[in-house]
């Protein structure tokens, strides 16, 4: 239960933070996520199997995700293609690249030491419960990430990214090139998504070529649930509610398990869930505009 809801919620929360940056802050619907998530997993598995030190592996994962995001931004900028098409192209190409990295559709991390196994051994004096130790490390990681992102979005550059999603003409009028800002934003978002993918690989102890299918929707569902629960215009709350949304989403999925007979049912369920959230949001808007 702790693992199913809280730990997975926190890991997918990192993914949802990436989705939040593109969909909400930049107003750039980005499907690259479906490719950069398994890319992060594949790169991490490859690094660990090669024996590259953990901290360097994380940097490599982030950079790889960042490059994937940048490619989407460059396709969009230079060819004037809509964001969805540009990101679908990158996503498609990443499938082949992920396969080339892994050299197999499924690669196991069994008996390989990861950040999670290391942390578990480290805190054995405190707790021997695997679930608790996972929970602790992900609370730590997510908190640090939120603090970093919160500071980033308070910098002049971070504020400019926010303004870009709100009003692109304003950015141009202020002498900034929106193309550069889009590259920065997408690189950051997909870097985070790749990090989330690398954590899932370490958590599940394997990387699967198909693990990315539909994750952008999981991220989006988390973002939207968060928006239903918490209202604010402060970036720290906007970031935190994404994590909260991801945990609630896992909770809903967990509780609805009796309904989901086939293991693939959760995609139908997620789709219906998003439709319900959209309907609720639309109704709320209607209500508030009527009075």
């Amino acid at each position: 239960m702790i693992e199913g809801i809280l730990v997975e919620g926190l890991i997918y929360g990192i993914l949802a933070l990436g989705v939040f940056i593109t969909f909400r802050i930049l107003d750039f619907p980005d499907l690259t996520v479906d490719g950069s998530f398994p890319l992060g997993a594949a790169v991490m598995v490859k690094c660990l199997l090669t024996g590259i030190p953990l901290w360097i592996s994380f940097i490599i994962v982030f950079i790889c995700g960042g490059i994937a995001g940048s490619i989407t931004a460059i396709i969009h900028n230079k060819l004037k293609v809509p964001s969805l098409l540009a990101s679908i192209l990158t996503m498609l190409m990443l499938y082949s690249i992920n396969m080339r990295i892994l050299k197999a559709p499924f690669v196991s991390l069994n008996k390989i030491s990861t950040l999670l196994t290391k942390f578990s051994t480290l805190i054995t004096p405190v707790t021997t419960d695997r679930a608790v130790s996972y929970l602790l490390i992900f609370i730590l990681i997510v908190t640090v990430l939120i603090i970093i992102l919160n500071n980033f979005f308070h910098t002049d550059l971070g504020l400019a990214l926010g303004a870009l999603g709100d009003n692109e003409q304003m950015i141009i009028s202020q002498g900034m090139n929106p193309e550069h800002l889009k590259i920065i934003g997408l690189a950051l978002s997909n870097g985070l998504v790749a990090i989330a993918g690398s954590f899932i690989a370490q958590y599940q102890k394997f990387s699967d070529i198909n693990m990315g299918i539909g994750v952008v929707i999981i991220g989006l569902a988390s973002v939207m649930i968060g928006e239903l629960v918490v209202k604010s215009n402060k970036i720290i709350f906007l970031l935190s509610r994404v994590i909260l949304g991801a945990i609630i989403y896992r909770g809903i999925l967990f509780l609805s398990r009796p309904l989901l007979i086939y293991p693939t049912d959760h995609k139908l369920f997620t789709g219906i869930l998003i439709i319900i959230i959209l309907a609720v949001t639309a109704l709320k808007k209607k209500g508030s505009s009527n009075g």
Binding site: T155, D156, L157, L159, M170, Q174, G175, N177, H180
Partner: peptide, 14 residues
């Protein structure tokens, strides 16, 4: 803050 100075914005909190 965004309109305070023109051109590319830096990674600092003003």
């Amino acid at each position: 803050i965004i309109t305070r100075s023109k051109g590319f914005k830096k990674l600092k909190i003003s």
